Simulated assay, not measured.
Amino acid sequence: MTQIQERTGVATVGGNPVTLLGPEIKVGDQAPDFTLNKDLMTEVSLADYAGKVKLISVVPSVDTGTCDAQTRRFNVEADKLGEDVVILTVSVDLPFAQSRFCGAAGIDKVITLSDYKHRAFGQAYGLLIKEIQLDQRAIFILDTNNTVRYVEYLTEMKEHPNYDAALSALRELV
């Protein structure tokens, strides 16, 4: 049985230090595969988005202000990016909560995916917060070959990502 890597001193929640489980993903790495729930019964993997440039927006929960704003921002930007790009928002929220949120917020361009079952995405991408079992906020951009081209790990859960930097990196790939 392999030991899960624990990373300390790299993230906080409300100013309190937390432990992230899993490796730090870096630019140039091959993106780890994942299995996430699109709805309660339907699972998807990285292969389901083959041939597309992928922006993966990771949020702790769509029911918080920063996560709501982050998801709305990428939903607006999705219209400007074309057919070769997919924006995936990943959280540990139940698919029901994600669906309710998207309906209420008019989110129709971003695909929400849930890491609720196994928390395996969070561990594979080095984001699972050991103490509270949520995924830390982050942005990953993958090219069509699933090579990581942009990474932003947020150090404080409540901070917003650098939207402009992420979108600039994304536009360079399309």
Rank of each mutant, 00 (worst) to 15 (best):
D108P: 00
V59R: 02
N146F: 11
V44S: 05
A124E: 07
V59E: 03
A105S: 09
L55C: 13
Y125W: 08
R72S: 02
A78S: 09
V62N: 13
Q30M: 06
C67S: 15
D29L: 05
D108E: 13
G103N: 15
L40W: 07
L127G: 07
D48W: 03
D135L: 05
F101L: 06
D143K: 12
D48S: 11
K38E: 13
A104I: 04
Q70Y: 03
A138S: 14
T71C: 08
D63G: 06
L113C: 09
D143S: 00
A69G: 06
T147R: 08
A104P: 01
V85M: 10
G122V: 12
G106K: 02
Q98N: 15
L127V: 08
V58F: 06
S99C: 00
E43W: 00
L127S: 07
A47M: 01
Y125V: 07
T112K: 11
A138I: 02
D33R: 01
A31T: 12
V110P: 03
T64N: 06
S57D: 11
R73L: 12
R100T: 13
Y125L: 08
I129W: 00
T147P: 02
I56N: 01
L94E: 10
D108C: 01
T71G: 05
A97P: 00
A104T: 02
V92D: 05
F121M: 08
V76Q: 13
R119K: 15
A138H: 12
G122I: 04
Q136C: 09
V92C: 08
A47R: 08
D84A: 15
V76E: 14
L113N: 03
F140K: 08
L40M: 03
A50Y: 10
A78K: 13
R137V: 14
A31P: 04
D29V: 08
L55P: 02
Y125T: 12
D63A: 12
D29S: 04
D63V: 15
T64S: 14
F121G: 07
T35Q: 12
D68C: 14
L128S: 01
C67L: 05
L128P: 03
R119Q: 10
V110N: 04
